[in-house]
């Protein structure tokens, strides 16, 4: 038994190895690819996997000089933001009712909302396509964006309900009672007590939806009828269709930087507004 004693540091080793192999190294590779360019043999500074390459920043200027790319960025983030807002608007009342309901003994009702997660994501999206086709929305190209939006909200709704539900469930009912006791009508109590106290749930729900939706191109591919392109799709095309890993890595890096900035801002925002919610902030 003596040999089985580990220090804290030793216990951290497997995680460190995992982190280096699957996060740090790929990230470094992406950066390397993003800042290099294929060049004709002979003029290379070094080779990656047998390919002659040299350092260049032209990947970035190439990406930002194309207006289509900028449009894709806007569409992606626009879609992600609208999806997040709609999901929150639907999920908050659902989570609130589930958390307060007497009928949700043992979380049975909650499971009904989580159940779709057990079905494969692609399959669910395909089913949604059939459904949209059936009600006639898929046939017209003018609905492509809306269809994609519906699919995204549908697929990500459980991820919004879950954190909201668990946070609302934990809010002590004495806070609402104290608020009513001090003269606040039910709506006022909700706005100035329940909502601020559920902020950590809202922040984690946003992070669960906002970032993945910018890249989950399966939904836009399946439901967008070829009319909705998001950043994830661009990256996929560069890697798998164009076989241009340098351009693909560049887009991935751009996306990464934008995500970091938005996370930083959301962290700042919640900290300023509410320090206790800040504990759950993304940094």
């Amino acid at each position: 038994m003596n040999g089985l004693k580990f220090s804290r540091k030793q216990l951290g080793i497997p995680y460190a190895v995992f982190l280096i192999a699957f996060v740090v190294v790929p990230l470094l590779l992406i950066i390397l690819y993003a800042f290099t360019k294929k060049v004709p043999a002979g003029s290379e500074t070094f080779t990656i996997a047998g390919e002659p390459v040299s350092f260049a920043v032209s990947n970035f200027s190439d990406f930002f000089s194309k207006q289509a790319n900028i449009r894709v960025l806007f569409v992606s983030f626009g879609l992600a933001i609208i999806t997040t807002v709609i999901s929150l608007l639907i999920a908050y009342p659902v989570a609130y009712i589930l958390a307060k309901s007497k009928f949700n003994k043992g979380g049975v009702l909650l499971i009904l909302f989580i159940l779709p997660l057990w079905i494969n994501f692609v399959l669910r999206t395909a089913a949604m396509k059939e459904l949209l086709y059936f009600i006639g929305m898929y046939k017209s190209n003018s609905f492509s964006f809306v269809n994609t939006l519906i699919g995204m909200v549908y697929d990500y709704l459980p991820f919004v309900i879950m954190p909201l539900y668990s946070v609302i469930l934990k809010i002590d009912k004495s806070y609402a009672e104290a608020s009513a006791d001090l003269g606040a009508k039910p709506w006022k109590t909700f706005v100035s007590v329940t909502l601020p106290l559920s902020m950590p749930g809202i922040v984690s729900a946003v992070s669960m939806v906002l970032l993945p939706t910018t890249t989950s191109y399966v939904i836009s591919d399946t439901l967008g009828n070829g009319n909705v392109t998001i950043v994830g799709k661009l990256i996929e095309t560069q890697f798998l269709t164009m076989h241009n890993w340098h351009a693909g890595s560049t887009i991935a890096l751009v996306l990464l930087v934008i995500i970091f900035i938005s996370m930083f801002l959301s962290g700042k925002f919640t900290e300023e507004k509410d320090e206790s919610a800040g504990r759950a902030n993304l940094w």
Binding site: D172, E177, L197
Partner: peptide, 11 residues
């Protein structure tokens, strides 16, 4: 009311 565990608003 003064509540048993105070119920001060933490936010």
């Amino acid at each position: 009311t003064v509540f048993q565990r105070y119920a001060l608003f933490p936010h």
